[in-house]
Computed example of a mutant assay.
Amino acid sequence: MSIAALIVAAGRGSRAGEGVPKQYRLLQGQPVLARTLAGFLAHPGIGHTLVVIHPDDRGLYEASVRSIAPISAALLPCIDGGETRQDSVRNGLEALSDSDPGLVLVHDAARPFVGPQLIDRAIEAAGRWGAAVPGVPVTDTIKVIGGQSEVVSTPDRASLRAIQTPQAFRFSLLLDAHRKAAGANLHEFTDDGALAEWAGLPVHVFEGESGNIKLTHPADFLDAERRLKSGSMTYITKLGTGFDVHAFGEGDHVWLGGIRVSHDRGVVAHSDGDVILHALTDAILGALADGDIGTHFPPSDPQWRGASSDRFLAHAVNLVRERGGTVDHLDTTLLCEKPRLGPYREAMRQRIAEIAGLRLDQISLKATTTEKLGFTGRGEGIAAQAAATIRLPEKNA
């Protein structure tokens, strides 16, 4: 039976304070949504994952996805949400209906600590009961109060559960329930379990996880940061440098920093000859002590003839992440008389940030001439030197 995960990320998160929506805020340098997605994309039981976003957040979403590169084929193109959470879930379910999954897990983007065992239990519960939600025991005494704040009753907390996500359903049952609610002009269900109950489905509770917290208030983010720091291993900072040069040849443009720049010459190169991206790739590989660009992409291999150099840089960044590491900063200096860097600098910084899945403030790009000295001074070629700082877990360093 195929299984889909539907991640709801269309909310504004106003209770979390000012700034970007909470699902895109950083935890230990990585967006919350990226951490949430990683748990589902890494789970072998999940066939497809779909994220429902706010229409205004597409750029934030794409940046979050780039931070977990390489992007899994299981991640479907995101879709826009609706006015309410319920509308957003229904939009996601309708988008998934063409693939007709047997089961669907609906999860809040702001719960980044979902673990594989919880996903296992959700899948098992959906298959067994058709509609199930995770819950954790309530440890505080709960009071039901009246209009004057007077205590009306004190429920037995042994029978109470605090409900979490992922909530798990047979896909056809949940889609039908959402369509019925929309047909009845009901749009305010904030919980799919409650909507399923309204539709007459028996909903069961399976064991949740106390650590599967939802980030709602500013204090929740502080707690999450402390949790990640206390549970993290020791990291070691590594520095690598890179250098690349290409001679000018026939042509009408050069590639620099992932941007096509008009010029009266081209470069002689096996790939697209982007000296900035080549130097950055070598700098990261140097920090990893993992050879150089020629080791990973031999010029003798015809598949790399004319290749776009963004593939080289993305590969190097992915190697860092595969070792559990983080790229902290990339710095490059372009050495040439022409073309001038100034008009393209910010576009190049933005493109490098996109390729590497980094923030713009982690990318530095400078240029200098060599005062008419050497091959660059004579206009015979172009060069770049780069430095990269990364952090690796001590055991992988």
Results as ranks from 00 to 15, higher is better:
residue 231 G to F: 03
residue 375 F to R: 13
residue 86 Q to K: 09
residue 389 T to A: 13
residue 211 G to A: 13
residue 216 T to N: 10
residue 246 H to N: 14
residue 47 G to I: 00
residue 366 K to M: 12
residue 216 T to S: 12
residue 344 Y to M: 08
residue 102 G to L: 04
residue 241 T to F: 12
residue 284 I to A: 07
residue 362 Q to Y: 09
residue 206 F to S: 10
residue 291 G to Q: 11
residue 120 D to I: 04
residue 165 T to M: 02
residue 208 G to A: 10
residue 307 A to S: 12
residue 368 T to C: 11
residue 327 V to F: 01
residue 279 A to R: 05
residue 255 W to P: 02
residue 201 L to E: 13
residue 9 A to Y: 00
residue 243 F to E: 13
residue 50 L to C: 05
residue 270 H to P: 02
residue 195 L to I: 03
residue 223 D to C: 08
residue 306 G to Q: 04
residue 59 G to D: 10
residue 268 V to M: 10
residue 324 G to D: 09
residue 123 I to F: 00
residue 373 L to S: 13
residue 207 E to Q: 14
residue 215 L to E: 03
residue 286 G to V: 03
residue 73 A to C: 04
residue 148 Q to W: 06
residue 138 V to A: 06
residue 140 D to N: 14
residue 213 I to L: 11
residue 252 D to I: 01
residue 382 I to C: 05
residue 42 A to V: 01
residue 336 C to N: 14
residue 192 D to N: 13
residue 68 I to L: 15
residue 357 G to E: 02
residue 302 P to V: 11
residue 334 L to R: 09
residue 185 N to G: 08
residue 307 A to T: 09
residue 364 S to D: 14
residue 244 D to L: 01
residue 336 C to D: 08
residue 223 D to V: 11
residue 91 N to T: 01
residue 42 A to L: 10
residue 222 L to V: 15
residue 186 L to R: 15
residue 283 A to D: 05
residue 110 A to E: 13
residue 272 D to L: 13
residue 18 E to Y: 08
residue 293 I to E: 07
residue 217 H to C: 09
residue 261 V to K: 04
residue 345 R to S: 05
residue 268 V to G: 02
residue 239 L to E: 14
residue 227 R to V: 01
residue 60 L to I: 03
residue 139 T to S: 15
residue 60 L to V: 05
residue 142 I to N: 08
residue 149 S to G: 12
residue 270 H to M: 11
residue 343 P to S: 10
residue 31 P to T: 06
residue 218 P to T: 11
residue 284 I to G: 02
residue 28 Q to R: 13
residue 236 I to P: 03
